[in-house]
Design a protein around this nucleic acid. Structure first.
Lengths: 341, 341
DNA sequence: CTGTTAGCGCCTTCAC
DNA sequence: GTGAAGGCGCTAACAG
């Protein structure tokens, strides 16, 4: 004898009544309800997840796909920690669990997603690290599982997303550097199809032109999303005859490696080459000078993400409009940005 | 019509045969088996988790409890990323999923664990951040859910664990510093009941005495497990008349804050105060000089953890002996450690 | 207000 | 080698 049946027997009532009492359904004698609740508390009874899931088709669980692998393990994953932390807090209030679904770099992301969907163990999904063209989005739309992406995509479709302001960051960075007299303003972005890189790059191009500057190819540095990649960028930049005097980069590991590369060559970030990053990171903690970055409220972002997916999953009727929001950021300047000498 | 029944119908065979074919059970015509497998592949069929779980009482999922919260979000969680990455890879080979169960600092860890256990959605558990006296361990033993802890505990019981060599680190650190002539060798540990702190502290005491040095109270600094805590330690240390000439600290955020504190006061890590940390961290990336730390193979640790819990859960018959292992580390010295002048 | 019962999707035992 | 049927724990619909 186990589960709800044991509980019912110990109270000499039927499992139906127990279930109703536990689930707050109407039509139960208040006294009976109290007895059930008390006994459940005492015995530590909680409904078996599989049984409930099988019956209701709901698991009270939201999944979040995150990429792992050698690169992720080496980098600083502080961004996801902060966001998931806030998300979880918001979900907990609704009795919903957040589980992280690590998709290793060596796995096929589509197969992983397919398997995850078919298993039926989550009610909704948060997709991260979106690509410019992301086949996972089409798969999710076809699956009818509610989802939201952290990061936009060019993939067509009527899905919910939230994102950081990569265009705004690039625009403000270029504008500020131009204001300080810089003309050869370079940009460093990671290899790969990440949508954020495309947005950042495109915005740099546009703002360069708006400033009357040329976004020429020798100002564009594409390399690995790692410190080594950033160091490569530094080496190639220092190699140029008409060396860029400033650079913006949206990857923290690359910024770290880049500054390391500069310093190793006796070139000072700030004094010799102005540097603007995207977000603060533990990796940049002891760089001198500190790096100019954008401040953002990841707590608020996480909370908004949670609200969006919870609404989509559990209040589908009310969720008439699809969330599409760009989280605001504030530029914080340090001595890593200086006027052109 | 859904699930296994739809698959069976589309092949004009019974669901029993489909199930046997899919699960590699004997007694299925090879040709039939191929047809089933092929169709499953094509349609992307995967057994529904709730149905299978309900029937078998197994979910092919291992949970891992990790602590989250403001402190965790600010710190560098690179350690867990590396370990879980390796664990997941090893589990995937066995068709087992690893899910992370974030337990927020604001939640009662015992209630969280209780709820997790009762939900019945995992076959085994990995517990992290063990305390000297950890009530979660008693709860797990009573639950009969197989588990392994990452980190020992003084809590009695016959459970499996793996851990890092905190005693070895403290012992080697003190021995090396003593060898270089240091006599006032301080130690900094985080507040709280974490078992690792107790081990580290006790080993420092023993080795100090073994070196004929006094582990006096003014050499012991206990503060928050944060950069601010580390900065506090620096301030208090610099304040002493008979200032310690060396320190060991097992918390990376504290080391980071400590070195920041020293530098802010114009005191050089290494040249003025020798510093030995525990593990390398993004937070220490651009400190000059780099900090002497211990190298460890987190990949191997993660793989061993995975093997241990998988054995416990799915090969209980063969797992006659309980895993209890301390992962080896290698001291890597830098200019943050220098002879006493 | 409470008891009884069907059935969610799957695996396994028992017939054949 | 295959089909039929029971039941894992739970909730909801239906009786009483």
């Amino acid at each position: 004898m186990t589960g709800i049946r044991a509980l019912a027997d110990s109270l000499n009532i039927s499992i139906g009544t127990v279930s109703r009492a536990l689930n707050g359904k109407p039509g139960v004698n208040p006294e009976t309800r109290d007895r059930v609740l008390k006994m459940a508390q005492e015995t530590g009874y909680v409904a078996n997840a599989a049984g409930r899931n099988l019956r209701k088709g709901l698991t009270n669980t939201i999944g979040m796909v995150i990429g792992t692998g050698p690169a992720a393990a080496k980098g600083d994953n502080n961004f996801f920690m902060a966001v998931t932390d806030a998300m979880q807090r918001a979900m907990l209030e609704r009795g919903v669990d957040l589980i992280l679904l690590p998709c290793h770099a060596a796995m096929d992301p589509l197969a992983f997603l397919q398997r995850t969907l078919q298993r039926g163990s989550i009610d909704g999904l948060v997709l991260t690290a979106t690509l410019e063209q992301d086949p996972r989005i089409a798969m999710l739309e076809a699956s009818h599982l509610p989802f939201i992406t952290l990061g936009r995509s060019r993939t067509p479709g009527n899905y919910a997303w939230m994102d950081l302001d990569f265009e705004g960051a690039a625009r403000q960075s270029v504008a500020r550097l131009a204001e300080l007299g810089h003309r050869r303003i370079a940009i460093g972005i990671p290899k790969g199809q990440a949508n954020l890189s495309a947005l950042y790059l495109e915005s740099w191009r546009q703002q360069m032109q708006a400033e009357g500057l040329s976004p020429s190819d020798d100002l564009l540095f594409v390399d690995d999303f790692t410190e080594a990649g950033g160091a490569q960028v530094a080496a190639r930049l220092l190699d140029q005859a008409d060396r860029p005097t400033a650079i913006l980069m949206c990857s923290e590991p690359m910024i770290s490696g880049f500054c390391g590369g500069l310093l190793g060559a006796g070139v000072q970030p700030g004094a010799d080459v102005s540097v603007i990053g995207f977000r603060q990171s533990p990796l940049l903690r002891h760089l001198a000078p500190p790096i100019s970055c954008f401040d953002m409220d990841l707590d608020a972002l996480g909370e908004d993400m949670a609200k969006a997916i919870l609404g989509l999953v559990y209040d589908a009727d009310n969720a008439l409009h699809i969330t599409r929001a760009i989280s605001p950021m504030t530029y914080v300047e340090t001595a890593s940005v200086q006027p052109l000498r």
